[in-house]
Amino acid sequence: MLQIENLSVDFRVDSGWISSVTDVSFTLGPRASLGIVGESGSGKSVTALSVLRLHAARNTRMRGRIMFDGQDLLTLPERRMREIRGRDIAMIFQDPMHSLNPVLTIGDQIGETLRIHQKLDAAAAQKAAIGLLDMVRIPDAARRVTDYPHQLSGGMRQRVMIAMAIACRPRLLIADEPTTALDVTVQAQILDLLRDLREEIGMSVILISHDLGLVAEFAERVLVMYAGELVEEAPSLTMFARPAHPYSEGLLKAIPSADEDVGRLYAIPGRIPDPGRRPPGCNFAPRCPLVQPACTAAPPPLATMEPGHLIRCPVRLAAMETTG
């Protein structure tokens, strides 16, 4: 259904063009779930926004192909792209505080998707909005529908965002850090809701997060991104039980567990290099516990370790092969 081939995204900044995302490829079938993890700045959002082509055209350059239902979204005319947005592919964002328009009622904002794509009139759209609010489990939907965003809590706003996204029963929902801004109990409720809706509507979901644990629990497959590149792809169980890339290992160790003291939380030392400041060879080399001299010589390729499990680390790959 969705097939991304060698996607690269460059942005124009004051000093010229910088490469944000490099050579990303992955596929996603119908009714599938995929997770994308990586620290902040690893290129997850840029990849996700590319699928809907939401980058500002005047300072963005995209290469590669994003095939959706057999057509390349990157070459589609803007008018056709607009028909796909919100109807076939929908997206929800990290910050529910700022992602809703403060001067429009939530009913208006939810109904708008239906007015555009299904040509509903205002009254029908309002009625449908109430149904959708019910569906995302907002109590007292008929009264809430005329509320403005500032009258709702963060969790409620994210539910409104979800209602808006699923209004046209899209085939693909991209959720970019949907729970990062919310507190833990609300987080779990929102993820439960997304799981149920995926089942109910039969849509595919891409869940993006910096939390490997959260993503591995939700999705069937997980991609790990670092500095704009894919560094590992594996089924969730594999990723959780025995990640192969040193960066994925670090992410796994960084997951807070219930019995651990929050103050002693593990963090990978160092920080992610900015686009344009990336080291030669392996991007992770400056922070990698396994770094070898050869790592800084040439960029390592993404290679198949076993069917369905790809990693971008020749050192680990060689070690795995010798140990069998």
Binding site: L52, L54, R82, E83, I84, R85, G86, R87, A90, M91, F93, D95, H98, S99, L100, N101, P102, E112, T113, I116, H117, M161, M164
Partner: peptide
């Protein structure tokens, strides 16, 4: 962000 949300919905 809410302008991006509107674009993601397919608003002209």
């Amino acid at each position: 962000d809410y302008i991006r949300t509107a674009r993601a919905k397919g608003v002209a």
